[in-house]
């Protein structure tokens, strides 16, 4: 296995008296889809927000490409090339696809917006991801389906040469065909060498695209396993009970208080 692109080591996080994350180790490898799974309240969102730089961490290390980095906010994380695609997508309905993909990072030429360059690059990026479902890159985002919007949000990460992409429940609101498109896209991202983190409740999706699965149980990493080595049933047990056979956290750990 190659060097992790992004790694958290021994991260703890509390909100007041509530200890949400316990000594979490989490790694994202290039070219792999790492699925982060867990029940509601297991700490997935908190972990994602720590990676995104929205929350600080109480202790533990944040490493990027093997080197510890200082994270003081989302901008630092974005500067490293880590892009988070949130569940609510955060696209501007009144702008078109190109404008959304370049939002906040518009190309300027001669003091004005360089529309030809932006449009051509946005088109190339979508094309390179083999996105064929969008009629025109000058379509307003309001007219796109859920899957297409997800596609645009993901393509934005590719356009900006992100090295790590975190996808928060990308298929939660999608139909069958759209889920198919998005999962294909997730796979293609990894095949291009990006480190992809997929946060999902849907075991079907996880088993289909993930290379590794990291189940969280009550703020702890229950396991970090290759998808091919486990069964659906084992993952469900890890999510709900923290262990499955010889996998998972030791029985009744003294520190298992939440």
């Amino acid at each position: 296995m190659s060097e992790p692109l992004l790694e958290l080591r021994g991260v703890n996080k509390s909100f007041g008296v509530v200890h949400v994350l316990h000594d979490v180790d989490f790694a994202v490898y290039p070219g792999q889809v790492t699925a982060l799974v867990g029940d509601n309240g297991a700490g997935k969102s908190t972990l994602v927000k720590i990676i995104a730089g929205i929350y600080g961490r109480d202790n533990g290390d944040y490493l990027f490409e093997g080197k510890p980095v200082d994270i003081n906010g989302p901008r630092d994380v974005a500067a490293l090339g880590v892009e988070v695609v949130y569940q609510d997508l955060a696209l501007c309905d009144n702008l078109d696809i190109v404008q959304n993909m370049y939002l906040g990072r518009e190309e300027i030429k001669g003091g004005t917006l360089d529309e030809p360059t932006m449009e051509a690059r946005a088109r190339d990026t979508l094309g390179s991801l083999s996105v064929r479902t969008v009629k025109s890159v000058r379509q307003s985002v309001a007219s796109l389906s859920g899957g297409q919007r997800q596609t645009v949000a993901i393509a934005k990460a590719v356009l900006w040469n992100s090295k790590v992409v975190l996808l928060d429940e990308p298929t939660a609101a999608l139909g069958v065909a759209q889920t198919r498109q998005v999962l294909d896209l997730v796979r293609r991202l990894a095949d291009r060498g990006l480190g992809v983190v997929l946060i999902s409740h849907n075991m079907g999706d996880v088993f289909e695209v993930a290379d590794r699965i990291v189940p969280l149980y009550l703020g702890r990493v229950a396991a970090d396993v290759a998808t091919k080595d486990v069964t659906n049933r084992q993952i469900v047990e890890l999510i709900t009970m923290g262990r499955s056979g010889d996998l998972g956290i030791a029985e009744n750990p003294t520190t298992a208080t939440v």
Partner: peptide, 22 residues
Amino acid sequence: VDTSSTAPGGAPEPTNAADRAF
């Protein structure tokens, strides 16, 4: 996978016209 071939700001592998999305 070599990511360094990706041109800054997008447009990675060339795509042939017929395969172009738009």
